[in-house]
Design a protein around this nucleic acid. Sequence first.
DNA 1: AATGAAAATGAAAATCGTTTTCATTAAGGA
DNA 2: TCCTTAATGAAAACGATTTTCATTTTCATT
Lengths: 149, 149
Amino acid sequence: MDPRVYEWLARLQKNGYRLTESRRAVIEILAHSERTLNPTEVYDLARQRYDSLGLVTVYRTLAKLEELGLIQQVHQPDGCEAYIAAVSGHQHLLICKACNKVEYFQGDKLDGLVERVENESGFLVQEHWLQLFGWCSKCQQNGTQVSRS
Amino acid sequence: MDPRVYEWLARLQKNGYRLTESRRAVIEILAHSERTLNPTEVYDLARQRYDSLGLVTVYRTLAKLEELGLIQQVHQPDGCEAYIAAVSGHQHLLICKACNKVEYFQGDKLDGLVERVENESGFLVQEHWLQLFGWCSKCQQNGTQVSRS
DNA sequence: AATGAAAATGAAAATCGTTTTCATTAAGGA
DNA sequence: TCCTTAATGAAAACGATTTTCATTTTCATT
């Protein structure tokens, strides 16, 4: 089993939450997924493993996993309800517009820019978002231009 | 009257849409606003000028203005349903977390970064989002920490 | 100015995603 | 194994957005 699944289950337990079949099913989907998944997609996929899972429980589990910092919400031009496994450290997202595959990257040097904008605007900047959108190598080959269901 | 209001009305007309009191009211609010407004906020403000305006018409007008590129949706950590007047050229957003005031800025040099990420990932990058979040000078003074209603 | 066709409107109803309620089930410490 | 309490799923409620539809308004044509 993906060690990440163990890790997440342990984190749940450590925080006083119980381990249940529903949560296991949701975690196995999210911990493995390379692409963003919205609540309905998680529900459909997780139900293949545990068919009495309810959509309500998916919502509740997503909230807990996000609270624990194990997953994060992903904002995209066509919707902001999808999630992906989080990584540690400040990283940025690269997202495929066809299949919603996500890769993280780091290495922006925005300090100078932020300082300049702060001076020019009088704002105090607290955080920033940097996201790249495009097509992953597989979707470039396929010529796919699929959009989220 | 704000010349921008004229401009937007002209753009509507040029595209075969009719000029109506409802649209005028919505446009006057959005063309003037320095901060992001969600549909309900637009509705409340525009009704002060034209009180028989319906919320449905606000939604329909927002869709048209966005289609014409006159306004753009703004994605924020706490919601993605707000709009702000668009500007021409590729600009980035600086947003106040307290009052939702928006300023545009430009001048990121991401070309090198994008190229590096493309090489490392095999992605073909098409667009990017760069947004800064913080507090505008007024809200810093007030010590306000208001959130969207 | 008057006319008429078509677009636009607002109210009500429908829809969709998400949250709450609640009776039942299941986890896990005793 | 028992018992407390968290967690669950089904149904109902909810809020935001969209659709439907009869009526009103715009505006090109007279």
